[in-house]
Design a protein around this nucleic acid. Structure first.
Lengths: 190, 190
DNA sequence: AATAAATGATAGATAAATATATCATTATAT
DNA sequence: ATATAATGATATATTTATCTATCATTTATT
């Protein structure tokens, strides 16, 4: 069951491709091969068509998110800790998240749309639980909160790439942003 | 100085093209023409090459944002009102905002990058002022706040398009999200 | 070291997108 | 109503991207 060297290379290609396509969705196969530092012939050996590559990218992203969320259980006791762990796990996957939302909606692939909804389930259930408990604003639609959080994962990833945000600061900043907002800590309303 | 009928059509094409490209950056000229409900020959008459079309899209987006922000002055007295007005003005331009950030970074067009920074200036100055006054969290990087707000403009626009969010609810929801976050209204941090 | 597998560069073929040109039809203006 | 301008459909050419095939070189295996 150990991943072969070929599997590793395949994963490296997928990672590089996702990274580039998240920033430049119109990248050609040649550009993708360059970014992955391989010849275009090799790229074709691993993924015979662009369409197959895109499908593999989506499946890879889903698998990585599943893997990252594995083991992060919500014991319903400590919301901030749970959120921090989720963000720590998912920020490095920012480009994958972004690609997923885009590619899935673009390709209208129902399979991938379903998977995308599935991987959002844990966070959705957690949010709804916290709303019931009065920890989160019950008047705000849960769907909006989820959407915002997943989008901010990509924003954070991008800011890290651009050198505007320290990797280690990102999870806390995200938690603070979504829970408290930008308001001064004491009070916030008018 | 009145816009001619041809200018109006030109703008209509730009609007339709932005809308489509924001959702599907890989759209072909044929798809853009279809979405704008014109023949591809007419599209070529207005914009002779794809590159010229993309440049025009960026310039149009910048002009619309300028126009939308015109007249919204920050009197430094009422942060929530100012933010609400900015969001009311910019949410309908969500697809333009999104296209701008993407196209500019993709094309590496320095002109557009500069304009993009310029249209963010008013909000940046306002945020920094509010931080000084203690209305906003001074420990949070202003750059992060601006980036988040501009990204959420597109998210809100998208949610409206998808039918998940009422147009009239969006500005308030955005203000609430960025100022208070998702926390229950009373208190938020641990 | 010898063998097998994988790679990259390159060339060529196919397919797709973009760009140009023509013409009949529709809309607009006067 | 007529003339002018704009449009859309279509055909064609050109460019670009994708895909396939070949072969020498590099890398891995034993």
């Amino acid at each position: 069951m150990k991943p072969s060297v070929k599997d590793n290379k395949r994963k490296a290609i997928l990672d590089a491709a996702t990274e580039l396509l998240a920033l430049k969705p119109t990248a050609t196969l040649q550009e993708i091969a360059d970014h992955a530092q391989i010849g275009i012939a090799t790229l074709h050996r691993y993924f015979s068509t662009r369409e197959l590559l895109l499908d593999a990218l989506a499946l890879n992203a889903i698998g990585l998110v599943d893997e990252a969320l594995e083991g992060i259980m919500n014991d319903d006791s400590d919301m901030l800790r749970f959120l921090t762990e989720v963000f720590e796990a998912l920020i490095p996957l920012g480009s994958k998240m972004s690609f997923l939302s885009f590619a899935a909606s673009v390709d209208e692939n129902p399979n991938i749309l379903a998977e995308e909804a599935r991987i959002k389930q844990p966070l959705r259930e957690a949010v709804e639980g916290w709303q019931t408990r009065g920890l989160l604003n019950a008047a705000m639609p849960a769907h909006w909160m989820i959407t915002v959080m997943y989008n901010l994962l990509f924003v954070a990833w991008q800011e890290i790439q651009n050198g505007n945000l320290a990797k280690n600061d990102a999870p806390q900043l995200l938690v603070s942003t979504v829970i408290q907002g930008f308001g001064a800590s004491g009070r916030s309303g008018s």
